[in-house]
Design a protein around this nucleic acid. Structure first.
Lengths: 221, 221
DNA sequence: CGCACCCGTGATAGCCTCTAACTCCAGTGA
DNA sequence: TCACTGGAGTTAGAGGCTATCACGGGTGCG
């Protein structure tokens, strides 16, 4: 990332510094008011300069948001990697994902929330998404996890996944592992997204209990 | 709903008719451009009248969106009720939910997508949400479903749910049924929301296969 | 018939994104 | 050392949006 740190001119260093400050203010605004209320004008005002100045650093509002999405993806990938280094099991990965999501709900929703119909994700976010998938596949393929209860339908899904494993890249995962990783992702996302969006808030029970039970269900799949 | 149809004055009938036309245009706009791009001005222009006229029918943009959310909730509840009348089993409910979600992704996302931080859902949407939950509990409590694999953690969750069953209202569901209904909701929502948001689009496999397998996993829980 | 009410209008304020023309200064090369 | 180039920031302004206000005009009620 900082490969050309020495060849960087002062101009460039100043530029990236201002860009980072803009992003910092953008994150604050997103966390409190939501992404839809993100305003370049307001950021500029808070930084003590006039609105159009920001267009030196980001071509338009969409480009800033795209950059924030990229950063959010990278942050999630880093979090998962860090958890995988500590202990590459499903439980710690799941815990890391949950704390990451609850730490800044709007950051989570920037990735997994409502997409803008016309928006096309840039190439490298899909690359990061595949990195995340690889970490999940590693954890899902670990020894000592429960076997999956046999059923024609589950077997059919695994056969289908074995035929369509492009998303796993070059990962040498067994069909059952592909299945487990996918289910890990969707089930935990199911609990997390509803929790983050506040759909449990009036229900009274503790989402953490449900989350833990779902994590266990995946390990014993 | 149409209890006072005869006592309605022509004025009132015209009023609700215009309101419905506004909502119709709003839905079209949401489906194509997304909720964040919903513009009262654009709707007015398309209806052949000037912007401020719409404020006779909705106090502000938020009130219109709230009304649309209410309608979306009601539409989901109706869909689930219709499916429950045909056959009150989990499979048909799950199928109805999926077709409803894919039929208009932005309508689904209006309920389950990114919430606006300050927004507070009105009372009757939570009432409708509880109706939906009741239908889920009915289906989850049916006879002939597989027993749940015993585990201390799953048992602990069920005990917790038995202690915090306010969201079930007066429904006489066993703890295992509470558990199954919750898991039905979160797991299917996990697959659906990722599918609707396009996170599977580049992965190559068929979400329907995964969905079917998850439905089966819930029935055999 | 008269009157109150509701509907739709244009004008306007204030916010936003984004462009254009301009000034100014830092860093560069002769 | 000095002229110059290019990036940074400014103001002005177009065009969009939400929302309010004051004003005509028609509708339906007493």
């Amino acid at each position: 990332m900082a490969a050309s740190a020495e060849t960087e001119t002062p101009r460039q260093r100043y530029r990236t510094q201002v860009q980072n400050e803009i992003k910092k203010h953008a994150w604050e605004q997103i966390a409190t008011e939501g992404t839809s209320a993100l305003s370049l004008n307001a950021i500029a005002k808070r930084m003590g300069m006039s609105g159009p100045a920001l267009y030196r650093y980001f071509a338009n509002r969409d480009e800033l948001i795209t950059e924030l999405i990229r950063d959010a993806y990278q942050s999630l990938a880093d979090t998962i990697h860090a958890a995988a280094v500590d202990a590459a099991d499903i439980r710690s990965l799941a815990q890391a994902m949950r704390t990451w999501a609850l730490d800044d709900p709007q950051r989570y929703l920037l990735i997994y929330g409502t997409p803008v119909p016309g928006y096309r994700a840039p190439e490298d976010t899909t690359r990061i998404a595949m990195e995340i998938m690889a970490a999940l596949l590693d954890a899902a393929g670990a020894e000592g996890l429960g076997a999956m209860p046999p059923s024609p339908l589950q077997g059919r899904l695994q056969a289908h996944l074995a035929d369509h494993r492009g998303w796993a890249g070059a990962h040498p995962a067994k069909p059952a592992t592909l299945h487990r990783a996918l289910v890990f992702w969707t089930r935990l996302h199911g609990v997390l997204s509803l929790e983050v969006a506040g759909h449990f808030s009036g229900m009274g029970f503790d989402p953490a209990e449900l989350y833990a039970a779902e994590v266990e269900a995946v390990t014993g799949l």
